[in-house]
Simulated assay, not measured.
Amino acid sequence: MSSPKYKRVLLKISGEVLGGKNGGLDYDAINSVATQVADAAKTGVDLALVVGGGNIIRGTEAQNFGVARTTADYMGMLATVINSLALQAVLEERYNLQTRVQSAIKVSSVAEDFIRRRAIRHLEKKRIVIFAAGTGNPYFSTDTAAVLRAIEIQADLMIKATKVDGVYDKDPKKYADAKRFESISFRNVLEKRLQVMDSTAIALCMDNNLPIMVLNIFEQGHIVDAIMGKPVGTLVHSGE
């Protein structure tokens, strides 16, 4: 296998991907994700992960039932810890990979506290680091947390693995004539209000020149292709 284009990559996985069709924890879905993560690790890239918690709880839904926003956000953070531990278990038991879960909120019985220098050291030792619990603060999405961690570990690329094969000018599920971009600038994403990530996350990427590759995680091999620099999904970048 040829050398990867990127030395260090952070992979953002939505929680819904781990929930399969029924939500909760779908271990077939988790194993499918773990297979792609294991293949990505074989390229020799330094690999970190951030997993959402939407398959277990969505903060907006909790708020609709009267749960305070702050409490709902902390519930979501704990959901990401559950997902991170589930993915860690499959990666270690089935694929014999060394992993570490680092949490932004203290759950020391099951995960390390997030310490940037320790995380980088794990990556240098080719351990997969799974960052859990978002930023540790309410009012910030897991997308923003993923960008923040990617910047902190000096990642060369952030991959956002979703159920969609890239960024479109409008919802491809609703509009048959939706156009997919092969590449697009951060500025255009903000101006067109495209639903790539929240505006805070996009602004962080733009300010720190962190490119994002948006791709469909259910397309086997696309994560490896992105790491190797092959054209998949949509590349969001600083250029025009």
Rank of each mutant, 00 (worst) to 15 (best):
S84K: 06
M1Q: 10
S185Q: 09
G134M: 03
G229L: 12
D28Y: 07
K174F: 04
Y6R: 05
T234C: 08
D46N: 12
C205L: 02
A29Q: 04
F181Y: 15
I57L: 14
N216Y: 01
I120D: 08
V214R: 01
I130R: 01
K7S: 13
V9H: 01
L25P: 02
Y139V: 06
G52K: 02
K12E: 11
L190M: 15
L97E: 03
A111C: 12
M228N: 14
E124P: 02
G53N: 10
M158Q: 04
G54L: 06
T70D: 13
Q63H: 03
I151E: 04
N96S: 14
K170Q: 11
M1H: 12
I159D: 00
K42A: 14
V214G: 01
M77K: 09
K230V: 11
L190R: 07
D225A: 14
G19M: 10
G44K: 07
A68H: 12
I227G: 00
I153M: 14
K160W: 01
I30K: 03
I128Q: 02
P211D: 07
K173H: 13
D39R: 15
R117I: 14
V232P: 01
I227Y: 01
K106G: 07
A62L: 15
R58S: 07
R69P: 03
N31P: 00
A203S: 11
L215E: 00
P4I: 13
V107N: 06
I223Q: 00
D73G: 07
K125N: 15
V9G: 02
V147W: 03
L123R: 05
E152I: 12
P231S: 13
D177C: 12
K174P: 00
L18I: 10
E112I: 07
T70P: 00
R127A: 12
L123D: 04
R149H: 11
T35I: 12
N188G: 02
A62G: 06
